[in-house]
Design a protein around this nucleic acid. Structure first.
Lengths: 149, 149
DNA sequence: CCGAATCCGCGTGGATACTG
DNA sequence: CAGTATCCACGCGGATTCGG
């Protein structure tokens, strides 16, 4: 049962990886990690978490202004899902006109820490990725999919 | 310009967050971070990276066996995309029957470190998320979407 | 101002069959 | 074994309209 050691950062990575792979499908009847990871796969969740982490508290339209290109519907759906998962709180003020404020929960902030690191990685390596794509496209094929650029 | 300090881990999080938000749309003509993050959003990329990181080198069908439910087509597409982004190498042995081996690049391994941390977070908090969902569903609505469970 | 509801185009991704 | 090619269902998500 030989394996490649990925523990080159001395941070129990190998152990964590084993745990993750063991829980990919289902974790003792709870939700498979796959579904949780999928939550950050959708188009707007991470951006919402970033902006709420940055601003602290935001009203619906304030958040909408900050997220370029999001539709009203998708922002609503996204925030509801985040609320349901316990990552965001939604506070309603029964005024006229109505006011609704969103904020990260403690759980949401703990997630923020993780995706900041991921975003930081993306930010630091985007140039390498773009160059790899250029080489790939020049070498063999025309772009697999022009929408990937 | 008051802001919520997210630097509660003493790890320059606030600074990183600013950088990320500044590069969300486009980073000096390169690829927006959004598109890079979207790469880990698709259903099979992270799982492929996890398993390649775990095993080191895998042939196509070895990897396919490890990823439960992936179709041949989607694994091919996923691996091509990862190869194009410079995250995975694809080595072809001109034999009969053909043999193709996949392996993470250095760039891929540096990404692996990040998504292991994310997966570890998901693994450690999945129970909290599931409980939050139960509370939410019991409180106000019936499940927003039964597929989310 | 903050949504809910409806309609619908389009891309993702599964199933199947076929090649080198 | 490791793909490609084709067909097609389904659901994401945009546009629009209506409500509290």
């Amino acid at each position: 049962m030989e394996r490649t050691i990925v523990d080159y950062q001395g941070n129990r990575l190998e152990e964590k990886l084993q745990k993750i792979l063991g829980n990919v499908e289902s974790e003792g009847g709870t939700c498979p990690i796959r579904h949780i990871l999928a939550r950050f796969s959708d188009k707007w969740s991470t951006l919402s978490i970033f902006h709420l982490g940055d601003a602290g508290t935001l009203r619906f339209n304030e958040l909408k202004k900050r997220i370029d290109g999001v539709s009203q519907r998708m922002l609503t759906v996204t925030l509801r899902t985040l609320e349901r998962d316990g990552l965001v709180t939604r506070r309603i003020y029964p005024e006229i006109p109505p006011r609704v404020e969103y904020e990260l929960t403690d759980l949401g902030r703990s997630l923020l820490v993780q995706i900041i690191e991921l975003g930081d990685w993306a930010s630091n390596h985007s140039k390498q990725i773009v160059e790899a794509r250029k080489r790939f496209d020049a070498r063999e094929h025309r772009a697999i999919d022009s929408t990937l650029v």
